[in-house]
Structures are given as structure tokens and as C-alpha cells.
Amino acid sequence: MRVLILLLAAALLAACGKPPVHGREAFVFGTRVEVLVADADATRAAAAMSAVLQEFDRLHRTYHAWQPSELTALNAALAEGRPHAVTSELAAFIVDAQAIAAAGDHLFDPGIGRLIALWGFQSDEFRPRLPDAAALDAWRRAAPSIADLRVDGRMVTSAKREVALDFGGYLKGVALDRAAALLRAQGVGNALVNIGGNVIALGTKYGQPWRVGIQHPRAPGTLATLTLADGEAIGTSGDYQRFFELDGRRYCHLLDPRSAAPVTHTQALTVLVAPQPGAGMRSDAASKPLFVAGDGWRRLLAPLGVAGALRVAADGRVQVSRTLAARLKFEPGLPAPEIVD
């Protein structure tokens, strides 16, 4: 009887408490992934989250940049100057990535995989070592780009053998869009999906908007928080996520194709993307050219379809577009941001 009373009391407390938010975590795409579902039906939530994580794992394995995958098979063929037949999915990814790379003046370019490898970032562990200077000079002379690829149906050819694809700045965003579609197909309309700082929101958290934090690039905790409407996505690129230090200098994984070197003028850049087809992909891919652009980041907002952005410069100055500033809640004690149009 005492056990029964305790169980009934626990049930009453649960009924009086907040509705459940179900969550699952995993490590995919080289980062922590979190899926939150606001749904009273625990069985439906569990099935939907499992479907999402399974798709994440498939995308990660299929398009891995340095472990054997469909992407490495294509890169090997390109290096040998051979045409290569790819899946319809990969062909569509290439065409899609070509378009967004062009919109960002190719400051983000998935065709620079060899450069990423030269800097040691195609590895699970980074060694504090600079690339060979002659190899860098050769890469600069070749100047390979995803624009050098030609897609004819499922057949891919390249004008340059130096092109090697790395979808590290694109695939997480694609995964967000896949997650949103899978969740809705499973009957889940209220969820939040976070892939290492790339986030998409569905619906609400039982009537309250989902609130997310923007990581401070040099201090523990958040720089600011933001509520997301249904279908909105944010993405952050930062020099604090993948980097190595050598002789007191930080070398991050975000490379400028023009100089073939890591960016040093920016600590972090966050973009907000309005609800639209491919919002997740755009939140991932658009933050990279804006990060690389430095002080010229504002001119790329419209071409990339970005609703607003926040930049933390190398000296710690915070710049934020007026549209985004109106929605941000900055942490107390921080210097006032510069509001720009």
C-alpha cells in the first residue's frame, strides 16, 4: 500500500508539473548533436528522434571527407582526371553547394578539400604544425574551386585535378533540413535540433518559443540569447571549435581560399535565417563566407538570404545587424554591441 501511495503521489506530481520535453544526444559530424521534442506522446517522440539520428549517421558516413565514403571515391576519381558517376543525392548536393558558394563570392567553397587537408584539419586530432610552404604555393597557383566541377546528370567531371570536396561547412545544415522533414513526417511539429551550434526550430515548447544561446567565443557561457520562431534557423562559425595553437598563435579551421590561410580577423559569426526551404543548409553554409569576409560581411547578407547576423571581431568588438539586435538579449556586463545596417 505504501508503494502504491508513493506511485500515485509521483503520478500526481508529474501531472501537475511541466509537460515533458524528450531529448536524445549523439556525437555525429565531429560534434555534439541534440534533438529535443515537445510532445506528450513519448513513443512518438522516441521514434521520431531515432529516425533523425539514424539519418544523421547515414549522412556522416556517406559523405565523410577523409574516411572511405562516396565523397572520397569521387575525390579519388577527380585527382586522377576520371569522370565519376555519383548518386542523385550527391549530384544534387554539388549543384546546391555550387550555387551558395557563388552567392558568397566563393569565400566558402567546398572544393578546397586539399587545402583543408594541408592544414591538418581532415583529422580527428590536430597537430600543431604548419603546412609545407611549397605545397601551399602549388595549391594557390591551381586555385581549385567547386565551380570547376561539371555535373551532367549523375556524371561528375572536373576541369582541375586539384579539386577535392569537403562538405564540412554544408552538410550539418542539410542534416537540419532532413531532421525537420523527418520530424514532421512522424507527426512531430514541436522540436529543436542542434548540431554543434547549428539550430533549427519547429513549432514551440508547449506554447513558448524555443530559446537558444549564442556561445561566447572567449568566455564560458553565452554571449546572448535568442528566441526562434517556427522554421527559423541559426548557425555559428567560430575560431574556437576546431583549431591548434603554435608559438602563441591560433590557427583555426576556417580558411580563406584567397590566401590559403586560416582567418585571423574574426572570432565568431552567427547568422539568422528566416523560414524557407533549405533554411538549415543556409544557416550552416552562409556563416562561413560572412566569417571569412571580415569587415565586409554586411554586403553578403542579402545575396546569401540571411535575415541578420552577429560578428565578434578579433579584438572582441561585437557587431550586429539592426534586425537581429532587436531580438537578442545580451548577457549583462558585456560591452555594448555596435548596431549596423
Rank of each mutant, 00 (worst) to 15 (best):
Q186C: 15
V188P: 07
V188Y: 04
N190Q: 01
A191C: 10
N194A: 10
N194Y: 11
G196P: 15
G197T: 08
N198K: 10
I200W: 07
A201M: 12
A201C: 14
G203A: 08
Y206D: 13
P209V: 08
W210S: 10
R211K: 07
I214Q: 05
H216V: 10
H216P: 02
H216Y: 01
R218I: 00
R218P: 00
L223E: 12
A224V: 07
A224T: 08
T227I: 07
D230N: 09
G231P: 07
G238V: 09
F244A: 10
F244Q: 12
E245Y: 00
D247H: 09
D247E: 14
G248S: 11
Y251V: 11
L255Q: 09
D256K: 08
P257N: 10
S259R: 06
A260W: 05
T264L: 02
T264M: 00
H265L: 01
H265C: 05
Q267M: 06
V271K: 06
G280K: 09
G280E: 10
R282T: 07
D284F: 13
A286Y: 04
K288Q: 09
P289G: 06
L290T: 01
F291Q: 03
F291T: 09
D295V: 03
D295G: 06
W297E: 12
R298F: 00
L301A: 10
A302S: 14
G305N: 00
V306G: 03
A307Y: 02
A309Y: 02
D315Y: 02
G316E: 14
G316M: 12
V318A: 11
V320L: 15
V320M: 14
V320I: 15
S321I: 13
R322A: 14
T323A: 14
